[in-house]
Protein backbone atom coordinates (compact mmCIF):
# COMPACT_ATOMS: atom_id res chain seq x y z
CA UNK A 1 0.00 0.00 0.00
CA UNK A 2 3.02 2.26 0.13
CA UNK A 3 3.74 4.62 -2.76
CA UNK A 4 7.13 4.76 -4.46
CA UNK A 5 8.90 7.96 -5.38
CA UNK A 6 6.73 10.56 -3.70
CA UNK A 7 8.19 14.00 -4.30
CA UNK A 8 9.15 15.74 -1.09
CA UNK A 9 8.13 19.32 -0.39
CA UNK A 10 9.25 21.85 2.18
CA UNK A 11 5.84 22.10 3.85
CA UNK A 12 5.72 21.31 7.52
CA UNK A 13 9.38 21.69 8.33
CA UNK A 14 9.83 22.12 12.06
CA UNK A 15 6.48 20.52 12.84
CA UNK A 16 6.20 17.32 14.84
CA UNK A 17 4.11 14.88 12.85
CA UNK A 18 1.19 13.37 14.77
CA UNK A 19 1.75 9.64 15.38
CA UNK A 20 0.01 7.43 12.81
CA UNK A 21 -1.96 5.60 15.51
CA UNK A 22 -3.46 8.88 16.68
CA UNK A 23 -4.47 10.33 13.32
CA UNK A 24 -5.99 7.03 12.19
CA UNK A 25 -7.98 6.32 15.36
CA UNK A 26 -9.37 9.75 16.24
CA UNK A 27 -11.54 10.89 13.37
CA UNK A 28 -14.65 12.86 12.55
CA UNK A 29 -16.32 10.95 9.73
CA UNK A 30 -20.02 10.95 10.60
CA UNK A 31 -20.77 8.53 7.75
CA UNK A 32 -19.44 5.91 10.16
CA UNK A 33 -20.82 7.26 13.43
CA UNK A 34 -20.48 10.23 15.73
CA UNK A 35 -17.86 8.75 18.06
CA UNK A 36 -14.24 9.64 17.42
CA UNK A 37 -13.30 5.96 17.32
CA UNK A 38 -16.30 4.89 15.22
CA UNK A 39 -14.65 5.52 11.82
CA UNK A 40 -11.61 3.39 12.71
CA UNK A 41 -13.91 0.61 13.90
CA UNK A 42 -16.51 0.71 11.16
CA UNK A 43 -14.96 2.11 7.99
CA UNK A 44 -13.73 -1.34 6.96
CA UNK A 45 -17.06 -1.77 5.17
CA UNK A 46 -16.13 0.91 2.63
CA UNK A 47 -15.13 -0.44 -0.82
CA UNK A 48 -12.52 1.94 -2.18
CA UNK A 49 -11.43 0.08 -5.34
CA UNK A 50 -12.50 0.56 -8.07
CA UNK A 51 -13.52 4.18 -7.51
CA UNK A 52 -14.92 6.63 -9.99
CA UNK A 53 -15.63 10.34 -9.80
CA UNK A 54 -18.40 12.08 -11.73
CA UNK A 55 -17.37 15.45 -13.11
CA UNK A 56 -20.19 17.72 -14.27
CA UNK A 57 -21.28 21.30 -14.66
CA UNK A 58 -19.49 24.30 -16.15
CA UNK A 59 -16.49 22.57 -17.71
CA UNK A 60 -15.46 21.43 -21.16
CA UNK A 61 -14.48 17.97 -20.04
CA UNK A 62 -17.16 16.17 -18.06
CA UNK A 63 -18.13 12.57 -17.45
CA UNK A 64 -17.32 9.66 -15.17
CA UNK A 65 -13.64 9.08 -14.56
CA UNK A 66 -11.73 6.35 -12.85
CA UNK A 67 -9.70 7.61 -9.90
CA UNK A 68 -6.52 6.14 -11.38
CA UNK A 69 -7.04 8.18 -14.53
CA UNK A 70 -7.49 11.39 -12.57
CA UNK A 71 -4.50 10.99 -10.28
CA UNK A 72 -1.36 9.44 -11.72
CA UNK A 73 0.91 7.90 -9.15
CA UNK A 74 3.97 9.47 -10.77
CA UNK A 75 2.70 12.96 -9.95
CA UNK A 76 2.27 12.42 -6.21
CA UNK A 77 3.96 14.61 -3.66
CA UNK A 78 4.09 14.71 0.12
CA UNK A 79 2.86 17.72 2.05
CA UNK A 80 3.07 17.94 5.81
CA UNK A 81 0.17 20.17 6.85
CA UNK A 82 -1.31 21.32 10.12
CA UNK A 83 -4.90 20.17 10.53
CA UNK A 84 -7.13 22.32 12.71
CA UNK A 85 -10.52 20.89 13.63
CA UNK A 86 -13.38 23.31 14.32
CA UNK A 87 -13.71 21.50 17.67
CA UNK A 88 -10.43 23.10 18.80
CA UNK A 89 -8.05 20.18 18.48
CA UNK A 90 -5.29 19.88 15.91
CA UNK A 91 -2.79 17.47 14.37
CA UNK A 92 0.05 17.50 11.84
CA UNK A 93 -0.40 15.07 8.96
CA UNK A 94 1.97 14.05 6.15
CA UNK A 95 -0.46 13.86 3.22
CA UNK A 96 0.21 12.34 -0.17
CA UNK A 97 -1.57 13.84 -3.15
CA UNK A 98 -1.46 16.31 -6.00
CA UNK A 99 -2.47 19.97 -6.14
CA UNK A 100 -6.22 20.24 -6.62
CA UNK A 101 -5.64 22.84 -9.34
CA UNK A 102 -3.76 20.29 -11.48
CA UNK A 103 -6.80 18.01 -11.42
CA UNK A 104 -9.44 20.69 -11.90
CA UNK A 105 -7.60 22.28 -14.84
CA UNK A 106 -7.75 18.96 -16.70
CA UNK A 107 -11.51 19.39 -16.89
CA UNK A 108 -11.16 22.87 -18.38
CA UNK A 109 -13.67 24.80 -16.28
CA UNK A 110 -15.46 27.52 -18.25
CA UNK A 111 -15.72 31.18 -17.26
CA UNK A 112 -19.05 30.36 -15.64
CA UNK A 113 -17.34 28.10 -13.14
CA UNK A 114 -17.21 30.43 -10.15
CA UNK A 115 -17.41 27.67 -7.54
CA UNK A 116 -16.60 23.99 -7.23
CA UNK A 117 -18.96 21.64 -5.46
CA UNK A 118 -17.92 18.27 -3.99
CA UNK A 119 -19.93 15.33 -2.78
CA UNK A 120 -19.07 12.30 -0.64
CA UNK A 121 -20.25 8.81 -1.52
CA UNK A 122 -23.83 8.07 -0.49
CA UNK A 123 -24.27 4.39 0.22
CA UNK A 124 -25.88 3.46 3.54
CA UNK A 125 -24.87 -0.17 2.96
CA UNK A 126 -21.21 0.78 3.14
CA UNK A 127 -21.57 3.84 5.34
CA UNK A 128 -23.72 2.78 8.26
CA UNK A 129 -23.98 6.26 9.73
CA UNK A 130 -26.00 7.35 6.69
CA UNK A 131 -28.93 5.21 7.82
CA UNK A 132 -30.15 7.81 10.25
CA UNK A 133 -29.32 10.92 12.19
CA UNK A 134 -30.03 14.55 11.52
CA UNK A 135 -27.72 15.01 8.53
CA UNK A 136 -29.14 15.22 5.02
CA UNK A 137 -26.75 12.86 3.20
CA UNK A 138 -24.65 12.87 1.10
CA UNK A 139 -22.06 15.16 2.69
CA UNK A 140 -21.53 18.25 0.54
CA UNK A 141 -18.81 20.86 0.36
CA UNK A 142 -17.84 23.74 -1.87
CA UNK A 143 -15.03 26.16 -2.63
CA UNK A 144 -14.71 29.36 -4.57
CA UNK A 145 -12.82 28.52 -7.75
CA UNK A 146 -9.80 30.65 -6.78
CA UNK A 147 -9.64 28.91 -3.41
CA UNK A 148 -9.74 25.55 -5.15
CA UNK A 149 -6.95 26.64 -7.48
CA UNK A 150 -4.72 27.87 -4.64
CA UNK A 151 -1.48 25.88 -4.63
CA UNK A 152 -2.04 24.82 -1.01
CA UNK A 153 -5.26 22.93 -1.83
CA UNK A 154 -4.44 19.25 -2.18
CA UNK A 155 -6.37 16.32 -3.56
CA UNK A 156 -5.06 13.56 -1.33
CA UNK A 157 -4.95 9.82 -1.86
CA UNK A 158 -2.56 8.93 0.94
CA UNK A 159 -0.88 9.77 4.21
CA UNK A 160 2.36 8.66 5.87
CA UNK A 161 3.59 7.46 2.47
CA UNK A 162 0.75 4.94 1.96
CA UNK A 163 -2.79 4.95 0.63
CA UNK A 164 -5.42 6.63 2.82
CA UNK A 165 -6.93 4.43 5.51
CA UNK A 166 -10.71 4.24 5.04
CA UNK A 167 -11.38 6.19 8.24
CA UNK A 168 -9.34 9.10 6.89
CA UNK A 169 -11.43 9.50 3.75
CA UNK A 170 -10.19 6.85 1.35
CA UNK A 171 -9.66 6.66 -1.50
CA UNK A 172 -9.61 10.40 -2.27
CA UNK A 173 -10.25 13.53 -0.23
CA UNK A 174 -9.54 17.22 -0.12
CA UNK A 175 -6.96 18.74 2.19
CA UNK A 176 -7.38 22.48 2.80
CA UNK A 177 -5.01 23.27 5.65
CA UNK A 178 -6.08 26.91 6.12
CA UNK A 179 -9.70 25.89 6.69
CA UNK A 180 -11.33 23.93 9.49
CA UNK A 181 -11.09 20.21 8.95
CA UNK A 182 -14.71 19.64 7.99
CA UNK A 183 -14.15 21.53 4.71
CA UNK A 184 -11.71 18.82 3.61
CA UNK A 185 -14.40 16.52 2.27
CA UNK A 186 -13.69 12.79 2.28
CA UNK A 187 -14.39 9.88 -0.10
CA UNK A 188 -15.27 12.17 -3.00
CA UNK A 189 -17.50 10.83 -5.81
CA UNK A 190 -18.66 14.03 -7.44
CA UNK A 191 -17.07 17.28 -8.61
CA UNK A 192 -19.39 19.89 -10.09
CA UNK A 193 -18.38 23.28 -11.47
CA UNK A 194 -21.12 25.78 -10.70
CA UNK A 195 -21.90 29.47 -11.08
CA UNK A 196 -23.60 30.03 -7.70
CA UNK A 197 -22.24 29.42 -4.23
CA UNK A 198 -23.20 25.87 -3.22
CA UNK A 199 -24.63 25.07 0.20
CA UNK A 200 -22.39 22.81 2.25
CA UNK A 201 -23.69 20.24 4.71
CA UNK A 202 -22.65 22.23 7.77
CA UNK A 203 -24.10 25.46 6.40
CA UNK A 204 -27.35 23.60 5.96
CA UNK A 205 -27.26 22.12 9.48
CA UNK A 206 -26.32 25.27 11.34
CA UNK A 207 -25.87 28.35 9.13
CA UNK A 208 -25.24 30.63 12.11
CA UNK A 209 -22.34 28.45 13.22
CA UNK A 210 -20.72 27.20 10.03
CA UNK A 211 -20.15 29.54 7.14
CA UNK A 212 -19.18 28.75 3.58
CA UNK A 213 -15.56 29.82 4.04
CA UNK A 214 -14.75 28.21 7.42
CA UNK A 215 -11.27 29.67 7.41
CA UNK A 216 -9.29 29.03 10.57
CA UNK A 217 -9.55 32.36 12.36
CA UNK A 218 -8.81 32.92 16.04
CA UNK A 219 -10.61 36.27 15.86
CA UNK A 220 -13.94 34.70 14.96
CA UNK A 221 -15.22 32.41 17.65
CA UNK A 222 -17.59 29.60 16.96
CA UNK A 223 -20.92 30.56 18.58
CA UNK A 224 -20.47 27.77 21.08
CA UNK A 225 -16.77 27.84 21.81
CA UNK A 226 -13.63 29.90 21.50
CA UNK A 227 -11.26 29.37 18.57
CA UNK A 228 -8.34 31.29 20.05
CA UNK A 229 -6.50 28.21 21.26
CA UNK A 230 -6.27 24.57 20.31
CA UNK A 231 -5.19 21.26 21.79
CA UNK A 232 -2.40 19.82 19.67
CA UNK A 233 -2.92 16.08 19.83
CA UNK A 234 -1.93 13.80 21.36
CA UNK A 235 -2.56 15.30 24.78
CA UNK A 236 -0.59 14.11 27.76
CA UNK A 237 -2.14 11.70 30.24
CA UNK A 238 -3.81 14.59 32.03
CA UNK A 239 -2.70 17.93 30.65
CA UNK A 240 -3.41 18.86 27.04
CA UNK A 241 -0.85 20.56 24.84
CA UNK A 242 -2.62 23.89 24.41
CA UNK A 243 -1.21 26.20 21.72
CA UNK A 244 -2.41 29.45 20.19
CA UNK A 245 -4.41 29.14 17.00
CA UNK A 246 -2.87 31.05 14.12
CA UNK A 247 -4.67 33.10 11.47
CA UNK A 248 -5.46 30.83 8.50
CA UNK A 249 -3.88 28.09 10.58
CA UNK A 250 -0.48 29.65 9.92
CA UNK A 251 -0.89 29.77 6.12
CA UNK A 252 -1.60 33.49 5.96
CA UNK A 253 1.22 34.12 3.51
CA UNK A 254 -0.18 31.62 1.02
CA UNK A 255 -3.90 32.40 1.21
CA UNK A 256 -4.51 35.88 2.66
CA UNK A 257 -4.76 37.35 -0.87
CA UNK A 258 -7.85 35.26 -1.55
CA UNK A 259 -9.76 37.19 1.08
CA UNK A 260 -8.32 40.68 0.63
CA UNK A 261 -10.94 43.30 1.45
CA UNK A 262 -13.43 40.77 2.79
CA UNK A 263 -14.96 41.13 6.23
CA UNK A 264 -14.00 37.77 7.67
CA UNK A 265 -16.34 38.21 10.63
CA UNK A 266 -19.20 38.32 8.16
CA UNK A 267 -17.87 35.73 5.74
CA UNK A 268 -16.75 33.15 8.30
Amino acid sequence: NAFDNIAETSFGSGETVTPYDVSTSYNNFYEFGYGKDDPAKRAGSLQTRPWSITVEGEAEVTGVFDLEDIIKEAALEERIYRLRCVEAWSMVIPWVGIPLADVLNKFKPTSKAKYVYFETLYDPKQMHGQRGGSIDWPYREGLRIDEAMNPLALLSVGMYGSILPNQNGAPVRLVLPWKYGFKSIKSIVKIRFVEKMPTSTWMQLAPNEYGFYANVNPQVDHPRWSQKEERRLPSGVIFPNVIETQMFNGYEEEVADLYAGMDLKKYY
Binding site: D221, P223, R224, W225, S226, K228, E229, R231, F239, P240, N241, V242, E244
Partner: peptide
Protein backbone atom coordinates in the same frame (compact mmCIF):
# COMPACT_ATOMS: atom_id res chain seq x y z
CA UNK B 1 -10.10 20.56 28.14
CA UNK B 2 -8.70 24.09 28.39
CA UNK B 3 -5.38 23.07 29.96
CA UNK B 4 -5.80 25.87 32.51
CA UNK B 5 -5.16 28.29 29.67
CA UNK B 6 -6.54 31.57 30.94
CA UNK B 7 -6.91 32.92 27.38
CA UNK B 8 -9.05 29.94 26.47
CA UNK B 9 -11.22 30.09 29.57
CA UNK B 10 -11.68 33.84 29.35
CA UNK B 11 -12.76 33.79 25.74
CA UNK B 12 -15.19 30.95 26.48
CA UNK B 13 -16.65 32.98 29.35
CA UNK B 14 -16.98 36.07 27.23
CA UNK B 15 -18.66 34.43 24.27
CA UNK B 16 -20.33 31.19 25.24
Amino acid sequence: FAGLSWRWIRSDLVEK
